[in-house]
Every structure is written in C-alpha cells, then in structure tokens.
Computed example of a mutant assay.
Amino acid sequence: MSVALSEPVMVFDIETIPDVASGRRLLGLEGLGDEDTAKAMFQLRLQKTGSEFLAHHLHRVVAISVVLATRDQLKVWSLGGPESDEAELVRRFFEGIERYAPTLVTWNGGGFDLPVLHYRSLLHGVSAPRYWDTGDDDRNFRYNNYLSRYHWRHLDLMDVLAGFQMRANAPLDEVASLLGFPGKMGMGGAQVWGAWLAGDIQGIRHYCETDVLNTYLIYLRFEHLRGRLSPEGLAREQTRLAEMLAAASQSHLQAFLAAWQGASASST
C-alpha cells in the first residue's frame, strides 16, 4: 500500500455554454441574438427530449479547470486566461496529456466532459495522438487507455462508484458533502450561462476550480478505498492539499479551505 501518489494525476472539469453560432446554423435560427438563440435551443431540446440539456456537440467550452498532482507538485488552476478562446483551452488540455500522460480523473467525464471535448477538438482541428492511442503507438496503452470505459487511465469516479449502473449515479455535490467536503460553491452548472451573459468569466473559472478540488478529495478517498493509499498516505495527501490552499492568495481557494475545515469540524 503506497504512502504517496505514484504517478501524475490530472483531475479536470469543464464548464460550457450553448454554442449559439452552431445552433443558429444547424437549427435554422438565423437572425436571432445570442440570448434568444439559446432560449430557442433550450426550448427545442425540451420539446424533443423532455429536458433542456443540450446535445453534447452544441456545448461550447468556456473553462477547463485542473488539479495536477505529482510526487513533487500539487496545483489547481484554470487553463489559459479569462480572455482565451475555446480553441486555446482545448489545445492546452490535450497538450497536458501529451506532456504528462497522466491518469485522468473526472466526475461524469465519460458521460459529458470528454465527449464534449471530442467534438470541440474536432471542430478546432486539435491533434491529440496520445489521448487517442489504443496501443498502436505505445503498447502500454493497449490494455489501459483513455478511451475504454473499463480501463483506469481515465477514472470516471461517478461511473466507477455506481458500478457502471446509471441508476446508481450520484451528484458530485451530494457525495462531496456526504464525505465532509465543501460541495458546490459560488454557483451551479445551470447558472453558468447567466454568469457568462453577465460577463463573469472569472466567477465561472473559480466555480470550476472548486469542483475539481471536490473531485480530487473524493479521488484520494477512493485511492484509499481500493488500497492504493495507506491511511498515512491519505492523511499526507490531504494535508498537502490543505497547505497548498492555505498558501494561495485567491479568495475562492481560501473560502474552499475554510468550508472544508468547517465541514470536517462539524462531522467530528
């Protein structure tokens, strides 16, 4: 049983808004402004499926946040800057995979984040050979790659913890809160479009970062659950994260640490 993480781990989450440019073109909504186009897209989707949640290919990525954990490094940040366009965000994400070949960790990444990134990388002409490798270039990827649902190079915690049974899926916010972690902070996914319209891209990025922090904390608990982190290793990694947050200057990271410490105190 390890007392430390043995390989690079990249926990990530994306935030999206309606791809109104594609919506106008594909759904015959020419002449409408962005807000009205989005309303029409939501309504058409509701009529078709009973839910306003848009099809994956009609989501535009506006934030990708990451926790990168190696033996020597632990950091949380959002890729690019507030001014970065979608193509840059997607390119930077896949460049990280090319550089580190990390274990990817998500919450519902197999059901949402990665399919969206597939369509958006296709749209923007982003090349990602290591991500798409299934053993032709690196034999180690033949039986453990990013694409197979049952491999471990991409660990979708929601899917794995549910035993790959959709009826057993649980929301990130509830599982995080159940375990004494902060859960959702600042906003929820349904509020991202409104925040974008209000020009609050920084708020979206901060919200996305708190989501990956929750996911990382659950991941550490899961690594202990499956015997890859000893109790001492789990405590060490949690302490390392708390120290990183304590040293951070950003108010949302300080707020996350305070909420985590408060939740932990109230559960003891």
Rank of each mutant, 00 (worst) to 15 (best):
S251D: 15
A63W: 01
G194T: 10
Y131H: 13
F164R: 13
L217H: 02
Y131R: 00
H252N: 11
S78F: 10
L234V: 10
Q47I: 08
P231N: 12
L26A: 07
S148G: 12
A258Y: 11
A4H: 06
N169P: 02
E209M: 08
G180Q: 03
I64L: 08
Q165R: 13
G135I: 13
L74A: 09
R153P: 04
D156N: 14
F94P: 02
I14Q: 01
A21G: 06
L44H: 08
S230H: 05
L161F: 11
A170N: 10
Q43F: 09
L245D: 03
F94L: 03
G183H: 15
V3Y: 01
E232M: 14
F112T: 10
V105D: 02
M187S: 15
I204P: 00
V66R: 00
A255N: 11
A190S: 15
A101G: 08
A259M: 03
L241C: 05
K39W: 02
F256W: 15
V116G: 03
P8I: 15
I14R: 02
E15L: 09
K75Q: 14
G31Y: 09
D138V: 09
L46F: 13
F141L: 12
G28R: 02
V212S: 03
F141Y: 11
F222G: 00
V9L: 13
G23F: 00
A255S: 13
F94A: 01
R167I: 04
V160P: 00
L225F: 14
L122F: 11
H118Q: 08
F53Y: 14
A55T: 12
L245H: 09
S266T: 05
E209T: 11
L104N: 14
E237G: 10
F256I: 15
E95S: 11
S2Y: 06
I14L: 15
M1Q: 00
Q165M: 11
P115E: 12
G203A: 12
T210C: 07
I218D: 06
A176R: 07
G28K: 06
A38W: 04
D159P: 06
Y207S: 05
N145P: 05
I17C: 04
L117T: 05
D85V: 09
G125R: 03
L117K: 13
S6P: 04
S177W: 05
A38L: 01
A190I: 11
L74M: 15
A265C: 11
A263E: 08
A198I: 13
M187D: 03
